[in-house]
Simulated scan of single mutants.
Amino acid sequence: MGIGNVGGRRYGGVVIPELRFGGLAVPTHDFFVGLAVVVAAVVFVLEARRRGAFREESLVAVAGALVGGAIGMRLSGWAEHLDFSLNPSLLEAWMFGSRSILGGLTGAYAGVLIAKRLIGYRERTGDLFAPAVAIGMAVGRVGCFLTEAPGRPTSLPWGIHASATVPECPGCLAGQAMHPSFLYEIAFQLAAFAAVLWARSRVSRPGELFTLYVGAYAVFRFLVEFTRANETVWLDLTRPQWFLIPGLLLVALRLRKGYRNGYYDRLLGRPAPVSVATRGYLPGHISEETA
């Protein structure tokens, strides 16, 4: 634990690179990633059963998400630089990649689409994933908090210190108090999980619950990047922020369409228009459309 003073008060940050279970040492980050997958899988199964959608095809979608997420997370550092001569080879990226959450989410989404296309499964599954992804992210970020650079320097009273041995952390070396950026994300994901559970019976069209979650997370992640320790590359924005900008535009258009079509009327406490109410999109119903 590192201890320091901010404004006359003391704050500490814990760095635990590995966990020990008897004589077995497990990397902390990997342990919480694995735990996050298990927790997310349990929540997915419970939600699928609640919606009457727990069947072989939905399990294929989960397999696609796991495979795609692993590939996306591992290879996310392959195209880190515009000058490709500065990037690692595919093998190096796979073995020593940055394991980006955004890369993992993108890969998981692509994996679900590919898996469903391969088996000809056309029902939407996004709403089954929304609560699972939120709670899984909350658990996984505990590993990030315990092993990675906390964030940028801050004078706020809840700033934390971390060991100087934390990789790629100038603030740690300088003994500065830093934003607990991963705690911000854990709090957001727990709140998002609760919000998804509350909203799932109030969104009229299948797939829109996941769209709302993705939109909220994209906005949050863009903003929280200003507190993260990630390198800025252009116009004081980080690589994740530049990755998110086109996605934010697409999500904004998607949400605008949903709002104009009345998909969120019940969520907003507005009476649903006839054009939506007569389509048979009931909470929990799975439509015959590709996600």
Rank of each mutant, 00 (worst) to 15 (best):
H161L: 15
P157V: 07
A162L: 03
T165Y: 05
R141M: 03
T147C: 02
A134M: 07
A149T: 05
G143K: 05
P170E: 09
A138E: 10
P157N: 02
A138K: 02
G159A: 01
S155R: 14
P170I: 12
A138R: 06
A138L: 07
L146V: 05
P131G: 11
T147E: 01
C169T: 04
I160C: 05
P131T: 13
T147L: 02
A138N: 02
G140P: 05
P131W: 03
A162G: 07
V133H: 10
V139L: 05
H161P: 04
V133T: 13
A149N: 04
S163N: 05
L146G: 06
P153M: 12
W158H: 12
T154K: 11
P131K: 15
T147N: 01
T154G: 13
F145T: 04
T154V: 09
H161W: 05
G143P: 00
A132Y: 06
A132M: 15
G159F: 01
S155A: 15
T165R: 12
G159H: 03
C144V: 01
P167I: 11
I160R: 05
G136M: 02
S163M: 06
C169W: 02
V166K: 02
E148Y: 00
S163F: 02
V166L: 00
A164E: 12
C169V: 04
G151K: 06
I135A: 15
G140T: 12
P153I: 11
T154R: 10
A138F: 07
G159Y: 02
F145Q: 08
L156H: 15
C144L: 00
M137W: 14
G136D: 09
R152W: 07
A132T: 14
E148K: 03
T154I: 10
V133N: 08
R152Q: 15
V139P: 04
P131A: 11
C144S: 12
W158Q: 08
P150I: 06
V166Q: 00
M137D: 10
R141T: 02
R141E: 02
P150K: 03
A149W: 03
P170K: 08
T147G: 00
I135C: 15
A149P: 00
G140K: 04
P153K: 09
S163P: 08
L156G: 13
V142Y: 04
A162W: 00
I160T: 15
G151I: 01
A132F: 05
V139M: 09
G151M: 00
G151L: 01
P167G: 08
M137F: 11
H161R: 06
A164R: 11
F145N: 14
A164M: 15
I135P: 07
G136R: 03
G136P: 08
S163D: 09
V139K: 03
H161D: 07
A138Q: 05
V166G: 00
G159D: 06
P157S: 12
L156R: 14
A138P: 08
R152P: 13
A164T: 11
A149I: 09
P167D: 04
S155M: 13
A164N: 14
E148F: 03
G143F: 00
T165N: 12
T165H: 13
A162T: 07
W158M: 08
G151T: 00
R152G: 14
M137T: 06
A164S: 14
E148W: 00
P170M: 10
L156P: 09
S155K: 14
G143V: 01
P153Y: 09
R141N: 09
H161S: 12
A164K: 10
L156C: 10
T147K: 01
T165E: 14
G143A: 04
A162P: 04
L146N: 08
A138H: 07
